[in-house]
Design a protein around this nucleic acid. Structure first.
Lengths: 208, 208
DNA sequence: TGTACATCAGTGAACGCGCGTTCACTGATGTAC
DNA sequence: TGTACATCAGTGAACGCGCGTTCACTGATGTAC
């Protein structure tokens, strides 16, 4: 036996907590994306970073806290998408289309999201995790509804549609597409569906 | 100590395999609905039926086979909904609305479905489970697309919409609503959203 | 109608496994002098 | 610039737990005679 291999992990790399926290969140997302919620174990996260499981406890109090950080990250990304879309064009309908496309891309590039949203991560977690997710989604839908209202004021969107319903329906442009993409192992073309669906959505919303 | 309690399970109830298989599938759905995918353990299923875990192996080869049966049951229900909707009215648009409402009700009454669809049940299971789900959803969407095509032939639906996209979009009427209902602990009104959303969907589909 | 027997649903003890978490420790890193 | 020390990220052994699964058994049920 090689004597060097008997000394376990001879060179240890120490990184600051802020760096490790980000790495751990990224590893959690990657693992859920690749192997589903069950693939997200502390052992797997640690292995991904070249650490030992107990090392994670230097940066998070427990697994629950890691899930909290993952949700926070995903929520921030969705809201950032909404804000970015608002910058792109002054037209409310174009902003809505842009949000749908950015949302589709986000899920396509990071399909941990549907897993987290529906999965055991919530069921197993404390009720606070579910409440956190509810708050996050509500903020996102509120941002979309605001755009719809602005479009109604500007005279590009029919005034007889309920902004909240229109926001949920925009989610409906993306969510089933992401779902089909997921179960078809990537064969379903999300962007193509969102573009096709958008034409219907626009036709329904457009002021005559 | 009461001597009767020392004799474990003095009266044993034996039921035919076909009966037990149905009970086991029903128990699995109930447990996932109430406690999420993690709540669906063989121990919990057995407890639910007043059995011992190993008894389940008289009726299914392993846990995987139970999941297969659950998916089969759910898929049959969705297709039955589609067929029932077709009986209710000759009008394609009314049939589509009916499917959306029946689907919403099915999920509302049995919210194991979103869990199963996205959750670890798939991630953990063999690839065949995912393929089974994909087949099931494809059949459902195909049934809906057929109705859209019929509506186009009958002149009630615009001919420039892609039937497949229209089918996915109908799913988008229901899926986000079910999701919001789930994370809001039942406070979101699914049926109200589906009715509101339907008006937009209809407006987009209607032949001028 | 009564008895003998085969079938097979249900039992309970036991298993190996991966999980999240703890704890006393080690030793690299940055700071104070 | 060089040394002593506090800090704290990382270690590794150990834990209790619930899980899916096995296996030799028991005894209720339905059938053949």
């Amino acid at each position: 036996v090689n004597p060097r291999s008997q000394r376990a992990r001879p060179v240890r790399e120490k990184l600051a907590t802020e760096v490790r926290r980000e790495q751990i969140v990224a590893a959690a997302l990657a693992l859920i994306s690749e192997r589903g919620p069950r693939g997200f174990s502390l052992a797997a996260v640690a292995r991904h970073l070249g650490l030992v499981p107990s090392a994670l406890y230097r940066h998070f109090r427990n697994k629950e806290e890691i899930i909290e950080a993952v949700l926070e990250f995903a929520g921030a990304r969705l809201l950032a998408n909404a804000r970015a879309a608002e910058q792109e064009s002054p037209d409310a309908l174009e902003q809505l289309q842009s949000i749908a496309l950015l949302h589709a891309r986000f899920i396509r590039e990071n399909h941990a999201i549907p897993h987290i949203v529906f999965s055991e991560v919530l069921a197993a977690g404390h009720p606070e995790r579910k409440a956190q997710l509810a708050r996050l989604v509500r903020a996102y839908l509120e941002a979309i509804a605001d755009i719809v209202r602005r479009g109604q004021r500007d005279g590009v969107i029919r005034t007889d549609v309920d902004p909240a319903s229109a926001a949920v329906l925009l989610l409906g442009l993306v969510q089933p597409a992401a779902f089909l993409w997921f179960i078809s192992d990537g064969r379903f073309d999300v962007t193509r569906h969102v573009r096709n669906g958008w034409r219907l959505y626009e036709a329904a919303m457009l002021k005559d």
